[in-house]
Write a protein that binds this DNA or RNA. Structure first.
Lengths: 312, 312
DNA sequence: ATATATATACTCGAAATGAGTATTATTGGG
DNA sequence: CCCAATAATACTCATTTCGAGTATATATAT
């Protein structure tokens, strides 16, 4: 491929939740790094970008995509390399949501917090933030070429990892860690191998971790105003299961009673009259998603709220 | 250009507001339809997609982009044609916000409601909705190939133009009108020329009107949770000017006293102590945007609200 | 002075939100 | 059988937000 040709890469972050574990479908390509299902866009064969994506995913993972949404198109020079490949690749990333199904050969569900361990605040603030990330970012600020650049870096570090955790800034945080040389991909893309400060999370092929970060950010944001979770749930579920799924995606805990009130008041679910048989505790009613809300209300969704303090 | 090559087109919807008029910068290409500034992505010359866009815009309009945001990447077969050109064009659309400046040669600010007259609800519901659009959509439903498809069409028509106007669904509405054959581009792209039902709004080159629809939709949505308006305002402004700008973009009126309260309570602006000299009425204080809020609060913005009833 | 236009302050009730306490239904162990 | 543990569900309460309005202040034009 010559230096000034463009090709378009289509990649999908296919997300599912199993219990408390949000996960993403990765393909085991010839012993290399974890990869999202992907392939080049072929104008002769694909009528739309999305139909191209569906074909590739179908071939590689043997299953049909349901809910699918385009995320972003990346074209930066030098962010799509693994070895020294030829022309420029412009990368179109997609988010897909699905109920968890059996894996196809060479395919595997992997918890997304393997790639972003600093994003899971459900139990506590991840210790690595104080022990590794903040000190390294302090150094990154100090190493800035000039004071203006240092101020900008300090600012970014503060917005990303300082007071007031905003769970939606997943991409911003990953990009900052990349530029600060705290993730593997930075060294791979720049050819450097020296002074590796840290190696946070599991790296991925090409720019796939960036795409996954975009996917998580989008999902966390959209969750609050569109009923996307239900794409990830079984046909019936208890309210606690629903809450656990949302928490898994958002990476933080929610207030149980208020969560139920929210879901009920918005008419997002309806009881089935059936109950589950839990190991302990009172049995919970099984609910189903009321698809009708999509017509009734302009923008139904779960406004998680909770800017003021921690849920419980 | 051969049939199975891809090229990437970069287009920018550059938006400004002058008084009550939201407008977009269009280029007068050889007597053809209105076009957004655009050009092909050149991997040899452009380090990123956005820098490529900036180069093209700079060449065509002689001015520097400020706030810029990627919108969407379109790749549908047959939606980028004006005449029968060669290979496939994948189109990356951008939104840019700017204060209104003088026009460069061959360049012109045009009110965006020329392209989307049904989107301006500031005075009243546009009459064309009841007189033209709804009847035509009724016919579109009736002409559906089967009853399932008819139900889907009825559903879409209702969400887009029925009860409960959602000002953010700009793209959905344009796409529906396109498919229903109510906009010029539909006939141009499909080569048909017969049974033209209507010809709503001013058409644009290629898929530029679709990109503009995406831009308006995004802007209307984001306005509610990010302080984007200020990119469009002069350094100082009265609160009424600010409100008129938001109204112009949102396409609907807001409650004046509540708007002030919102802006003030959120700490988005600060008074300068200076006052304007209006033609009539009490002089208004001039305010400036408090850039600091971007640091202080995680997601400042203007939550317009107003789902319950009409503003006043 | 008066009409008109605009700015700004303040009020009021309804709804949404955060953070609980209280009560009910179940299991498993003594 | 009673009790601790666990989970579901109901209810309370103060605060904040939001829609909608009234009241008052400060200009200009006539």
């Amino acid at each position: 491929m010559s230096k000034d040709t463009v090709s378009i890469g289509l990649s999908a972050a296919i997300v599912a939740v199993e219990g408390e574990h949000p996960s993403v479908l990765v393909v085991a390509h010839e012993g290399s790094q974890d990869a999202l299902p992907f392939g080049p866009f072929d104008p002769a064969d694909h009528r739309t970008l999305e139909s191209g994506l569906r074909k590739w995913v179908g071939e590689q993972t043997k299953f049909e995509l349901g809910y699918t949404e385009q995320l972003y198109t990346f074209g930066d020079k030098g962010r799509h390399l693994s070895a020294g490949s030829g022309g420029r690749v412009v990368s179109v990333g997609y988010l897909a949501l699905t109920r968890r199904v059996r894996e196809a050969p060479d395919t595997q569900w992997r918890g997304w917090y393997h790639y972003f361990p600093w994003e899971d605040w459900r139990d506590t603030k991840p210790a690595m933030i104080d022990s590794v990330i903040l000190p390294a970012l302090k150094k990154f600020v100090k190493d800035a070429p000039d004071s203006e650049s240092a101020a900008l870096r300090r600012e970014r570090a503060n917005v990303c990892f300082g007071e007031g955790w905003d769970e939606e800034r997943v991409l911003e945080r990953y990009e900052l860690l990349y530029e600060a040389g705290l993730v593997e991909e930075f060294y791979r893309d720049s050819g450097q191998n020296s002074k590796k400060l840290a190696n946070l999370g599991t790296p991925m092929l090409f720019d796939h971790r960036r795409i996954l970060a975009t996917a998580i950010a989008r999902l966390r944001g959209k969750l609050k105003y569109r009923p996307l979770v239900f794409e990830l749930m079984a046909p019936t579920f208890t309210l606690l299961e629903l809450q656990r799924a949302v928490e898994a995606l958002a990476g933080r805990r929610l207030h149980k009673q208020n969560f139920r009130r929210l879901v009920a008041d918005q008419g997002l679910v309806e009881g089935t009259g059936k109950f589950n048989a839990p190991a302990r505790g009172r049995p919970a009613e099984l609910f189903r998603f009321r698809r009708e809300v999509l017509r009734e209300r302009p923008a139904p969704g779960l406004r998680l709220g909770g800017r003021r303090a921690r849920g419980g």
